[in-house]
Amino acid sequence: MRQSDPRPIDPAVKPARGLLHKQTSFEHFELTRFEPSDDLADWVEHHWMILYDLGDRPPYTQRNLSHPNQHLVIDSRGETGIFGAATGVFETTLTGSGRVFATKFWPGAFRPFFGRAVSALSDTWLPVETVFSRTSAAMQEEFTGLNDPVAMAERMEELIQAQLPEPDEKVGLARRIVTFAEANLELVSAGELAEAFGLGLRALQRLFDEYVGVSPKWVIDRYRMLEAVEALNAGGAEPLTELAHRLGYFDQAAFNHAFEKLTGAAPGVFRARVD
Rank of each mutant, 00 (worst) to 15 (best):
P59F: 07
R63Y: 06
I50E: 14
P36C: 04
F34Y: 15
G55A: 09
L51K: 15
S37R: 06
F29Y: 14
D39N: 11
H46S: 03
E27M: 12
F29G: 05
E35M: 09
L40R: 04
R33M: 03
F29A: 08
R63A: 10
P59R: 06
D53Q: 13
D56S: 14
E45M: 13
D53H: 07
Y60H: 11
Y52S: 13
P59N: 01
D56F: 10
I50W: 14
R57E: 14
L54M: 09
E30L: 14
H46T: 10
D42T: 08
V44S: 00
L51P: 04
P59L: 01
H28R: 14
L54P: 07
G55D: 10
F26N: 02
R57D: 15
W43G: 08
W48G: 15
R33D: 02
D53A: 12
P36M: 00
T32R: 15
G55W: 10
H46R: 14
E30N: 11
T61V: 05
W48I: 01
E27P: 01
W48D: 08
E30R: 15
D53P: 07
H28N: 14
R33W: 05
G55N: 10
T32G: 06
Y52L: 03
I50D: 11
L54E: 13
D42H: 02
V44Y: 09
Q62P: 05
D39T: 06
W43S: 11
D53V: 03
M49C: 15
F29H: 14
D38C: 01
Y60L: 09
D39P: 08
W43M: 07
H28V: 00
E27R: 15
L31N: 01
F26V: 03
V44F: 05
T32Y: 03
D53L: 03
M49G: 14
D38Q: 13
R33F: 01
E30P: 05
E30V: 11
W43L: 11
D56W: 10
D39R: 08
W48P: 04
W43E: 03
Q62Y: 02
L31P: 07
H47F: 15
R33N: 04
